[in-house]
């Protein structure tokens, strides 16, 4: 068991190196650079060259990469090309909003997704199952930005239940915090719950066909004991796995959600800085988000051991 966990933890290192290479390459493969944008529409090629030299963009790509890696390892994540604000400061001011959204959205997705999936599987083919399936299909296929605007239009503009834009940290006012994050949380929760519903339902339906469920019935166990003790634990691995994917869905979801609800979080920061080719920030943010994702999935991997004795090899 310990050997398995150590193996998993060590496996994170090559993954992060790979993520670093990909992140750096993507930013440099993308057309256009900060120098072009900074110079503006009327600048001549010489102006652009000058700016590029100032930013260090004229050096060979390999050299830029090595320098970037060196700085990152030393903890210097760089600063914005445009404003000069350090990435660490930017992240510090914006991470609260993003954490609020992803954590509440994730919890809502799990709290909706698992019970709905369980009910759908248990009552497969029934009216409830149909309803849950439609819910899941809608949650997956309806674009977040569209649903977000509909929600703003209905609940903020017409009903005036919630503010239209912005974010207030909980340290300032708990009630305002709740009012600001309710709609974005629901938006993230609906989208996230859809994949969990589908996986839970599919995993349980598969488990219900297993011989050991028949054995459990033949022992005279009540349906609830069969469902929670035998079926749900056996089907837990695919469900937990999809919760790992949910972390990715939530991270990408915040980009859209924070943009729609004009919330100053990391997601919107990614969107803005990608548009302006502000690489130091884009690179560091992508690295940060990827690291979070890798570690969430590390936790998922380790939870397998706890849930399924067969993994303890």
């Amino acid at each position: 068991m310990t050997a398995y966990i150590i193996k998993r933890v060590l496996a994170v290192i090559p993954i992060l190196i790979f993520v670093g290479v990909v992140t750096f390459s993507l930013v440099h493969i993308a057309p256009g650079d900060a120098a072009n944008i900074m110079a503006g529409d009327y600048a001549g090629p010489d102006d652009v060259k000058l700016i590029r030299k100032e930013l260090g963009l004229d050096k060979p790509v390999m050299q830029q990469f090595v320098e970037w890696v060196g700085r990152t390892i030393r903890g210097d994540l760089g600063s914005s090309i445009f404003s000069g604000i350090s990435v660490i400061d930017l992240v510090r001011t914006r991470i609260g909003a993003t954490l609020s959204l992803t954590i509440t959205g994730g919890i809502l997705a799990v709290l909706l997704g698992i019970p709905l999936g369980v009910i759908a599987a248990w009552k497969a083919g029934s009216f409830i199952d149909r309803f849950v399936q439609i819910w899941a299909a809608a949650g997956i296929s309806i674009p977040g930005f569209w649903l977000g605007f509909i929600m703003i239009w209905a609940f903020s503009v017409n009903l005036r239940w919630f503010p239209v834009i912005g974010y207030v940290p909980p340290t300032e006012s708990i009630t305002d915090w709740i009012r600001h994050i309710t709609l974005p949380t629901i938006l993230l929760g609906i989208n996230g719950s859809a994949i969990i519903v589908r996986m839970t339902r599919a995993a349980l339906l598969e488990v219900f066909r297993e011989d050991y469920i028949r054995t459990a019935r033949s022992k005279g166990l009540a349906e609830s004991a069969i469902l929670f003790r035998h079926a749900l634990r056996s089907g837990a691995i695919p469900i937990i796995t999809v919760i790992g994917f949910l972390a990715a869905a939530l991270i990408t979801g915040t980009v859209v959600t924070e943009t729609v609800f004009t919330i100053p979080g990391l997601g919107r920061l990614v969107a803005e800085t990608v548009q302006t080719r502000d690489f130091p920030i884009v690179q560091s943010l992508l690295m940060l988000l990827a690291t979070v994702y890798v570690f969430v999935n590390l936790i998922v991997d380790i939870s397998y051991v706890v849930l399924d004795p067969r993994v303890r090899l």
Binding site: E210, D211, Y212, R214, T215, A216, R217, S218, K219, G220, L221, R229, H230, R233, S234, A236, L307, D308, P309, R310
Partner: peptide, 20 residues
């Protein structure tokens, strides 16, 4: 079930719950 009448099935490899 399981008390007055009990049953043994064909597949021993799959008839016990793997996680318990």
């Amino acid at each position: 079930r399981g008390s007055r009448i009990s049953m043994i099935f064909q597949e021993p490899m799959t008839s016990l719950t793997p996680v318990l």
